[in-house]
Computed example of a mutant assay.
Amino acid sequence: MVTIKDVAALAGVSTSTASRAMHNNKVISDETKQLVFNAMKELGYEPNYAARNLANKTSNTIGVILPVAGPEIFQNPFFMEIIRGINQECNQRQYMVTIASGDTNEELADNVATMVKRGRIQNFILLYSKVNDPVVTYLHDQKIGYTVVGKPVDYENETPYVDNDNILAAKDATEYLIQAGHQNICFVYNNEEQLVSLDRFTGYRRAIRSADLANEYQYQAPVDTSPTDVETFGSWLSEHPEVTGFVTSDDIVGLMVQQTINQTADIPRKVVSFNNSLFSQMSSPAFSSIDIHAKQLGIEAVSLMMKYIDNKNSLVSKIIVPHRLIVRD
């Protein structure tokens, strides 16, 4: 049976150095880490994480917390892309990933508490940010480490986070429509609790007011869109024939808007959305979307979290991932 001593001997380092390299300790150089990882691969060595976790009363698992939603959230490519980035970075750092989800705030908070108490998970990545979140309250009160994808609502100065400049991104999307000649533009969203929706509305509003346009329009779609939502939005649209441009909070909402527009083809209208997912690319016609680089958000979230795992005294910091407007005419 291959042991850590065999790995150390093949890599030409001491056993303690090999152990530190496997744990991605920052005092070990990248060159030495690579030597150890190559030796592990050649010998087929797999660290016994269960034994290490039992001894340390900790876990090498990162908990990833999804927003409250039904099973349809696993069909949302935005979250799948973030998780793909998280998995990729965690694999490189010899960490595992487990998912926490729930249909209600209470269920989600209970699931997270169970992961802490039974799974000994001490580090989490939240894939959302919203007001009055019991999960954040629990993690903060229990002094559990967490990083947020999105700007924190509470404890911002204490919380490391990764985000886009959603205000600027929405402003860019709205200004693109204005420059294309649209004078009446509506912001369509589906979750007012999410801080990201509030930021994107702020960006939309800034662009409208900066251009001295007379009207602002808002439409709140249901959180879980369905065929009946197209009919309902179609009724709203028939009451507002002057609206020809739409900034939507994400591609799923954008698809609902585009499907409605397709039924009123007599009036030229245009959609700009967020996430640049398959929903915007495969729609007929395809519509423009802001690429917020979801996979990179996941990678950066893990990198930021590891900084605090390695050094609990690190200053709290944030990472802003740039966005890009993908134009589809």
Rank of each mutant, 00 (worst) to 15 (best):
A69K: 05
G70W: 02
G70A: 10
P77W: 02
P77Y: 02
F78W: 10
F78H: 12
F79N: 04
F79S: 01
I82L: 09
I83M: 12
I83P: 03
G85A: 00
I86R: 02
Q88H: 01
Q88K: 10
C90Y: 02
C90H: 02
Y95H: 13
M96P: 01
V97K: 04
I99K: 05
A100Q: 11
E106P: 03
E107M: 09
E107Q: 09
D110K: 09
A113G: 06
V116L: 02
R120C: 08
N123R: 14
N123S: 15
F124P: 07
I125T: 11
Y128M: 05
K130Q: 13
N132H: 15
N132G: 11
N132D: 15
V135S: 04
V136K: 05
T137M: 13
L139G: 06
I144E: 06
G145P: 01
T147S: 02
V148S: 09
V149E: 07
G150E: 06
V153N: 04
E156N: 01
E156W: 00
E158V: 05
T159L: 03
T159C: 05
T159V: 07
Y161N: 06
D163T: 15
N164T: 14
N164S: 15
D165S: 07
D165K: 04
L168W: 00
A169G: 06
A170L: 09
D172V: 15
T174M: 13
Q179F: 00
A180Q: 02
G181L: 12
Q183H: 15
N184H: 14
I185Y: 03
V188L: 03
Y189C: 03
Y189K: 04
N190M: 09
E192R: 15
Q194A: 11
Q194S: 10
L195H: 06
S197Y: 08
D199M: 14
T202P: 08
T202N: 15
R205P: 04
